[in-house]
């Protein structure tokens, strides 16, 4: 028998967390319930976060946007602030799962699952997201790249809850780009994905670039070397092809049921080359 608690506030949550140390915490449940059923091992206590009022908000606060951990993908996708300031995130969300999965799944859940294929992660890396981790008696903010440690492992400590995500409004990049390669369009787990933010001059010279790849390493992969190598070059086929060897050295993909390591490595480079087709207009959100 499993008992499921559904606290209505963080205060209620802390009480339950203290009382049931062995409890598993869930948000949308779209990953956890698949796993529990496959293992046929249900914990004695589950705590669902859907009713915790402090985890629902999406708000703009002095140059930044706070996204509560239980904001669903559907809510984020229809939110004007997200579409306006973070088109790279909106684009990734559109490719995540299917409509009912997006109605159930949450940004906090996608982060804490810490899958190398988590669709919201590459955009959050390039956007420099910070996660807010709360305890009963305090909170801290950690950059997303320090929070995710490996497949399924995070820096979350005992008694801590990921309460939300902070994103600085990022209007200085002229190109917001996300592309995912999967085995089909809907409900596809990424074979490889790329989130990219690029700023070019009027004449198309790259001023700054940020890249993050999904599914080509144990965590999201970034490459300062590839980003630096592109600066000063005209954004086009030749420049992008010139950084492919750096990209291929940066990634460390594995063979699995969806693709081979060699194919993933080729994709990581080719996804960058496909930026050649992008003009200066920001991505339509």
């Amino acid at each position: 028998m499993t008992t499921v608690y559904r606290p209505g506030s963080l205060d209620e949550f802390w009480d339950m967390r203290e009382k049931y140390g062995e409890a598993l915490v869930f948000a949308g449940g779209t990953d956890l319930f698949v796993k529990l059923r496959a293992l046929n091992k249900y914990p004695p206590v589950l705590i669902g976060l859907a009713g915790v009022k402090e985890l629902q908000s999406i708000e703009e606060l002095s140059g930044a946007v706070f996204i509560g951990a239980h904001a669903t993908h559907t809510r984020l996708l229809s939110h004007p602030r997200i579409r306006e300031h973070f088109p790279v995130l909106a684009s990734a969300l559109r490719s995540l799962g299917s409509p009912p999965i997006r109605n159930m799944g949450t940004i906090g859940g996608n982060i804490c699952t810490a899958s190398p294929a988590g669709d919201v992660l590459p955009p959050l890396y390039v956007l420099g997201a910070q996660v807010e981790l709360r305890k009963k008696d305090g909170s801290r903010r950690v950059p997303i790249r320090e929070f995710i440690l490996g497949p399924g492992t995070t820096a979350l400590t005992d008694g801590e809850l990921l309460s939300g995500v902070w994103l600085k409004k990022e209007d200085s990049f002229t190109i917001h780009h996300f592309e995912k390669v999967g085995q089909r369009k809907a409900l596809a787990i990424a074979v490889a994905s790329l989130a990219a933010l690029v700023t070019t001059t009027e004449t198309g010279i790259v001023e700054k670039a940020r890249f993050a790849w999904g599914s080509v390493g144990p965590t999201v992969v970034t490459s300062q070397d590839a980003e630096d190598a592109l600066v000063g070059l005209p954004l086009g086929l030749k420049a992008l092809q010139s950084i492919v060897p750096i990209v291929e050295r940066s990634v460390s993909p594995i063979d699995d049921v969806r693709a081979s390591a060699a194919y993933r490595k080729a994709l990581a480079g080719n996804l960058v080359v496909r930026l050649a087709g992008r003009g200066r207009e920001p991505l339509r959100a």
Binding site: V4, G29, T30, F33, V34, A50, P100, N103
Partner: peptide, 24 residues
């Protein structure tokens, strides 16, 4: 959660009945 055959509406939004537990 991959086939959608169990789609229902919960508070007017589509949900997958195979990925929900009774308490919800």
């Amino acid at each position: 959660g991959e086939c959608g055959a169990c789609t229902i509406l919960v508070n007017s939004e589509s949900r997958l009945a195979c990925l929900m537990v009774a308490a919800q």
